[in-house]
Design a binder for these strands. Sequence first.
DNA 1: CCGCCATGTCATATGGCTGTAACAATTGTT
DNA 2: AACAATTGTTACAGCCATATGACATGGCGG
Lengths: 229, 229
Amino acid sequence: MAAKILIVEDEPAISEMIEVALVRANFEVIKAEDAEEAMRLLGDTQPALVLLDWMLPGASGMEFARRIKKEELTSHIPIIMLTAKGGESDKINGLDAGADDYITKPFSPRELIARIKAVLRRTSPQVADETIEVDGLVLDTASHRIMVNDESLELGPTEYRLLHFFMTHPERVYSRSQLLDRVWGSNVYVEERTVDVHIRRLRKALTPSGHERYVQTVRSAGYRFSTRV
Amino acid sequence: MAAKILIVEDEPAISEMIEVALVRANFEVIKAEDAEEAMRLLGDTQPALVLLDWMLPGASGMEFARRIKKEELTSHIPIIMLTAKGGESDKINGLDAGADDYITKPFSPRELIARIKAVLRRTSPQVADETIEVDGLVLDTASHRIMVNDESLELGPTEYRLLHFFMTHPERVYSRSQLLDRVWGSNVYVEERTVDVHIRRLRKALTPSGHERYVQTVRSAGYRFSTRV
DNA sequence: CCGCCATGTCATATGGCTGTAACAATTGTT
DNA sequence: AACAATTGTTACAGCCATATGACATGGCGG
């Protein structure tokens, strides 16, 4: 299996208990004690799933889940919430910001593993698609690389993310602010015009192979990635 | 989908939670924190639906709903009320004020999306759908594009909006001033005759495929989009 | 510590879009 | 038929959105 699981839990006792259970089930475990540390580890380690304690010091679990789900970079990562049982659960239902499942404490390791596997099974089909191809333009998420006619194409990180977003969401217009939310991340403040510049850089990189024609401007609406020209 | 939803909610946490859910469902989100701001945004942005918190600072949600439904320009916009859980009386009051549906907190994102789609389907079947088709003329709101016989058709922004409005409101006459309100937006001042010019431009674009015959002049009344010629 | 790379912002260029006015054409009325 | 009212059509000037190149900054590795 070797799938990485990120545990976000401030209580060491619980976190360790979970770790033992997961290691026995052959998962790889990464631990964070608060939302900030978790956020940092998210980008670095690209876990397959996040186990998130509802009660965290500082930013709440909900806040953290919201951040994960809002950003294109991490929104595909499933979240399982760990909640204390009680009247709180109502609130969770209402304020759920995108958790894929919940487990109320106390829970058995067996149940935890079962839930994790269930969620991974449910979401894995998306993860399985490691490469996307459009007319000779190949984006390989595994190697984090773009190929055109067996030639590797150099892209800056932002342009890579932009192209990745476009290729996974083709035939659809996105406004500059939508692109900022989904490619840059929601809690970033940048000028909308910045999108133009990165579109330009992306087009420049795609021009030698002629693929820049797929990156289309939709005046007064935004940009679109479309194979129809 | 690309339909715009106006959220009127003073509590940032809730409003943001809703935003995340809607963005994930590919809606475009506009937010207002009070009735006044909402009223201003209503005219400018012409949202497809309003999500309205029952409890608002200042003017109550109910009063705001009344205002929306009272004015010619906005009365067609459906409203979904967000209410703290309560008795039947709230429901009755809400529906009485003109709400098309209501949801009691706490609610799940899934339920919210489902209700929104249901209301949109009910009130304007065409908005909820990704594409509208009339006799080979296809308007795809997701990609913001017009297709005729697999050929993409070039339209300026205003002509696109005009055609979109017509295709979602066929078989009915609209005066120039109504068109200005609904297509241009309420607080813009332009000459009524400007409509003629854009009608002309739209017809010109539709002529090669013969679809210009659907854009019909109704003398001394306005224009109509009709499939009956 | 230096230099390179990535990024975001600004200034400017460019081209398309828009509204308006003027004139032509059509329709309706007497 | 003459006239009035309404609509069609075209040209154009200003404006606005986008494209593009240049630059300052800051991070990171050497």
